[in-house]
Structures are given as structure tokens and as C-alpha cells.
């Protein structure tokens, strides 16, 4: 397993899975953005799944970083899927004026993997915390 700050990045074979479980500092967000983009290039991953089900707020800084990750991976021929956004976060983002245009989203990691045409490894705990 690979780690950016306290954010683990799992390689599921062609798909990188990032599960954000900690309160993010702005620096960690930027490090994640850079690291993920580099890892997509290194591994030739065709997809990135960012699981934000444990994230209780997405402000404009994090939203921009997520959008930039998606844009950069797309240039590298990989698709980024944002999964698990909490309903309260979605409502707040819309009111904030952010609708994340162009980002692919899914309700869960499983659905995200389906979008990327990948089956979930049995070793990955599907329900956490």
C-alpha cells in the first residue's frame, strides 16, 4: 500500500482507490493531487476512485483539488470517479455554487468500480468504520 500523508492509495490492478478517512489539511490535499497524478502515469491505471464517504465537508479548496485531479487523470487517459458523497455535503456544495461539472460520481465504491468495469477485490472492506 502507498500512502500520502495519512491517505492510503490502493492499487486494485488498473484502478487506484483512494479512501479519505482523515481530516484533510490543505497541504495533504495538494500532495494527494500531485501524487495521484504521478501514480496514474507510473502504473498506467485506467481509473481512479476517490471515496469521500468519511468526509464531512467539501469546501471550495477541496472541490477544486478534486476537479483538478479528475482533469489531470483524464489527460493521462484515466477516469476519476468520486464516490460516497454524503447528502449533506452535496446539498452544501450546490448552495456554495459548486456542482463539480464534468466529474463522474457514484454512490459507492462498488458502483464506481462498475463504472470503471472492474470487480471489487474481496480483500477490500466494503463497509468501513
Amino acid at each position: 500500500m502507498h500512502q500520502v500523508g495519512e491517505v492510503p492509495v490502493l492499487d486494485l490492478g488498473g484502478v487506484l482507490l483512494v479512501s479519505i478517512q482523515v481530516e484533510l489539511l490543505d497541504d495533504t490535499v495538494l500532495a494527494l493531487q500531485q501524487d495521484l497524478t504521478e501514480r496514474v502515469a507510473e502504473t498506467g491505471a485506467r481509473g481512479v476512485i476517490i471515496d469521500i464517504s468519511s468526509v464531512d465537508i467539501v469546501d471550495s479548496f477541496l472541490a477544486r483539488a478534486l476537479r483538478d485531479i479528475a482533469a489531470a487523470t483524464e489527460v493521462l487517459a484515466a477516469r476519476t470517479v468520486l464516490v460516497g458523497m454524503r447528502p449533506a455535503v452535496a446539498i452544501t456544495l450546490v448552495e456554495l455554487g459548486l456542482t463539480l461539472p464534468g466529474m463522474t460520481t457514484a454512490l459507492s465504491v462498488e458502483r464506481g468500480l462498475e463504472l470503471l468495469d472492474t470487480r471489487l477485490d474481496e480483500n477490500y472492506p466494503t463497509r468501513q468504520g
Partner: peptide
């Protein structure tokens, strides 16, 4: 912000809005 919102009996959406606003302004 989160602790205050919980103490004030805010709904989850209200908590999230306040905490997000606080995050923007603190930055």
C-alpha cells in the same frame, strides 16, 4: 463550528453548511 452546531441542535445539513462556511472564512 461543528461542536457549536451540534450543541445548538443543528440538523446535519445545517451543521455541514456552517462548518463549510467556517472553513472558507478561516482559510
Amino acid at each position: 463550528a461543528r461542536e457549536a452546531a451540534v450543541e445548538a441542535g443543528f440538523s446535519l445539513v445545517e451543521q455541514t453548511k456552517l462548518v463549510t462556511a467556517a472553513s472558507e472564512l478561516a482559510r
